[in-house]
């Protein structure tokens, strides 16, 4: 089970939490503003920004450690 969890979620909790937080935010925005032009045209870049922030947060221990 530990190996399977590591396979699906990886070695850290921050990255899967960041991905699921991005997904939750995207689903909320899609429900609220799914028909608006800004979501259709800028929503993708918002998703990209959220994912890049999640990646940066997951790497934060490497900046602080040692």
């Amino acid at each position: 089970m530990k190996a399977l969890r590591k396979l699906v979620l990886g070695e850290t909790w921050t990255l899967p939490l960041g991905v699921f937080a991005t997904l939750a935010l995207a689903l909320v925005l899609d429900a609220v503003a799914g028909d608006t032009p800004w979501w259709r045209h800028a929503g993708g870049f918002l998703l990209l920004a959220c994912v890049l922030i999640a990646l940066a947060v997951s790497l934060a221990p490497a900046w602080r450690r040692r």
């Binding site: 991005t22 997904l23 995207a26 689903l27 899609d30 799914g34 979501w39 259709r40 045209h41 929503g43 993708g44 998703l47 990209l48 994912v51 990646l55």
Partner: peptide
């Protein structure tokens, strides 16, 4: 994989990527 991940997530939520697949 990350590029495809963001691309599919956006497509599934009705986002229009400028340049379509070239995004």
């Amino acid at each position: 994989l990350s590029s495809f991940g963001v691309f599919f997530l956006g497509e599934g939520l009705g986002v229009e990527w400028p340049g379509h697949d070239a995004a």
